[in-house]
């Protein structure tokens, strides 16, 4: 028994999913499906690729072409799929560790190429699948099982990283602000080029317990109360910025898309001597 949206786009036989109580992965996955539904995409063309980690289990639940690859490599597999068949609507589901640690190189290069792939980052600031180790987005001083004395690393801003590397659409919101998330995902898919949408997410089981963040509800409230639109944030006096996080659309430009350019190259060589 499920909603029309779930029964239309999910492999219901594989539900309920494996995610912990209060994990926001389900919220973000549903938001993606809602965006796909609102855009009226052809299910047979939608291809969802993931790496390894909690969020990367999402494709197994989705009734599209789905590919669960190796750790960090989703964007590289996805690049092959998209170039080989540009008619596919390629969407990558990934986590903060998957996309910015082991897969960081693939992220910046997919962005640089401006290949028409939409990447949804489920950023819960922790390695959940392996039990709560700190990731490249774990805040400084936060705790993880491999940062038992507090994290001395500085975190990445994945959205700004993608924007700087050449993504033509880069936006961040949270798993609390779901309508905004759906809107951003739709814009990302519609953007002809590389898009990255970061969903600030919650992991009550590992991040939350370790850092005494409270229940899933408390963590959702934190997202609601501390994420501020980038334009409003910029106007705040410095002392009001402390402890606040930014969300919003960080980049939205138009540039030539990689597979289009390749097809043009093929077209230009037609009739020429091999």
């Amino acid at each position: 028994m499920s909603s029309t949206l779930i029964s239309n786009y999910f492999r219901e036989a594989n539900l309920p999913h494996i995610w912990c109580p209060g994990c926001s992965n389900g919220i973000v996955t549903r938001a993606l499906v809602k965006a796909i539904d609102e855009l009226g995409l052809d299910k047979n063309k939608v291809t969802v690729v993931s790496g390894i980690g909690c969020s990367s289990r999402a494709p197994g639940y989705l009734d599209f072409n789905t590919l669960h690859t190796t750790h960090g490599r989703a964007l590289a597999f996805a690049t092959g799929l998209k170039l080989a068949n540009p008619d596919l609507e390629v969407i990558v589901i990934t986590g903060d560790g998957d996309v910015s640690a082991i897969g960081g190189n693939h992220l910046i290069h997919a962005a640089r190429r401006n290949i028409n792939i939409t990447t949804i980052v489920f950023n819960n600031n922790i390695y959940g699948m392996t039990g709560g180790q700190y990731s490249p987005t774990t805040p400084t001083h936060a705790l993880g099982t491999t940062a038992p004395h507090g994290n001395i690393d500085k975190p990445f801003d994945i959205t700004q990283l993608a924007a700087a590397a050449g993504a033509t659409y880069a936006a961040r919101t949270t798993s609390y602000h779901v309508n905004q998330l759906i809107k951003y995902i739709k814009k990302g898919i519609e953007n002809k080029g590389f898009s990255l949408i970061e969903a600030a997410s919650i992991c009550p089981t590992y991040y939350g317990r370790k850092n005494k963040s409270g229940s899933a509800v408390k963590m959702m409230e934190f997202l609601r109360d501390n994420y501020i639109d980038i334009k409003a944030y910029d106007k705040l006096p410095d002392d009001k910025k402390i402890g606040k996080e930014t969300m919003g659309e960080f980049k939205e430009i138009t540039l030539p898309e990689y597979t289009d350019e390749y097809l043009r190259l093929i077209e230009n060589l037609k009739g020429a001597e091999k």
């Binding site: 499920s2 949206l5 309920p16 995610w19 919220i27 938001a31």
Partner: peptide, 15 residues
Amino acid sequence: LRCPDFAIWLGGEAD
């Protein structure tokens, strides 16, 4: 919108 488990929704009797 926010149910992580798709366990609650608005629907009609058919659902």
